[in-house]
Simulated assay, not measured.
Amino acid sequence: MQILKVVPGKSIGEIEIGMDRQEVYRIIGTPKKQESIEWIDEYHIEYANDKVIFIEVPDSFRDTHFVLFEGVDLFRTEAKLLVKYISEYGKYDETDCELGYSYSFKELGIGLWRPVIFEYDMLDDPEFQELDPEIQQDEFKHLFFESICVFVKDYYKK
C-alpha cells in the first residue's frame, strides 16, 4: 500500500493546485481529450487558464493507498468522525444544502462527498431492518465518504 497525502488547498499526492497541465500529464498521464475538467487515471482534475484549481480522488484509491490528512485515513474513517476531526482545523459550510452528503471546508480547501447518508444509529431503524441482508451490508459503505477533493481558496465563489 502506498501513502497518498492530502494537503487541503494544496495537493493530493504529487498533483498540486497551481500546477500546469503538462506537469500533471507527466505525473499521471494524458487524457484522450484536453478539457477544462478531466478524468485521468481516476483523478478528477479541473483547470483554469491551464492551471490546476481542483483535484478529486474516489474511494477506489483505498484499494492501493492510504489517503491521509494529518495521519488520518480519509476513506477508512467513519464520515461523522472525519467531519469532527477536520473541523478541528477549520469550519465547514453549514449553509450547504447538501450537508450530510457533502462537507466543504472552504477556508481549508478540502471537500468530502458521499451519495447516501448512513450512520450507525440507523441500524435500529425499522425501515433498515426490513431490507434484505445483502442490501443492509451494502449500506455500510455509506458510513464513509466516497470522494475527497482539494481546491483553490475561491473555488466555490465562481
Rank of each mutant, 00 (worst) to 15 (best):
I3P: 00
L4V: 04
K5L: 12
K5V: 03
V6L: 08
V6P: 09
P8C: 10
G9N: 10
K10G: 01
K10E: 15
S11W: 06
I12R: 11
G13C: 07
E14V: 01
I15T: 03
I15V: 14
I17S: 06
G18D: 09
M19I: 04
R21H: 02
R21G: 03
Q22I: 08
E23P: 00
Y25F: 15
Y25N: 05
R26I: 00
I27G: 01
I27E: 11
G29A: 10
E35D: 14
E35I: 01
S36V: 10
I37Y: 09
I37W: 11
E38M: 15
D41F: 04
D41W: 03
E42A: 13
I45Y: 11
A48Y: 13
N49K: 14
K51T: 07
K51F: 02
K51A: 08
V52C: 07
F54T: 05
P58N: 11
P58D: 11
F61P: 02
D63E: 15
T64R: 12
T64L: 07
H65E: 07
F66M: 04
E70V: 01
E70C: 05
V72F: 05
R76Q: 13
T77R: 10
T77M: 09
A79V: 04
A79K: 07
K80Q: 13
L81C: 02
L81D: 15
L82V: 06
K84Q: 14
K84Y: 06
I86K: 06
S87D: 08
S87Y: 02
E88H: 06
D93F: 01
E94R: 14
T95D: 15
E98T: 08
S102Y: 00
S102C: 06
F105I: 07
F105N: 08
K106P: 01
G111N: 05
L112V: 02
W113K: 05
W113L: 01
W113E: 08
R114E: 03
R114F: 03
I117P: 00
I117R: 08
E119Y: 11
E119D: 13
Y120K: 14
D121M: 04
D124A: 14
P126N: 09
E127M: 07
D132V: 05
P133Q: 12
P133S: 12
P133I: 12
D138I: 00
H142V: 01
H142M: 02
L143S: 08
F145Q: 02
F145R: 02
E146W: 12
S147K: 14
S147Q: 10
S147V: 00
C149N: 15
C149H: 12
V150H: 09
F151G: 07
K153V: 02
D154F: 01
Y155V: 05
Y155R: 09
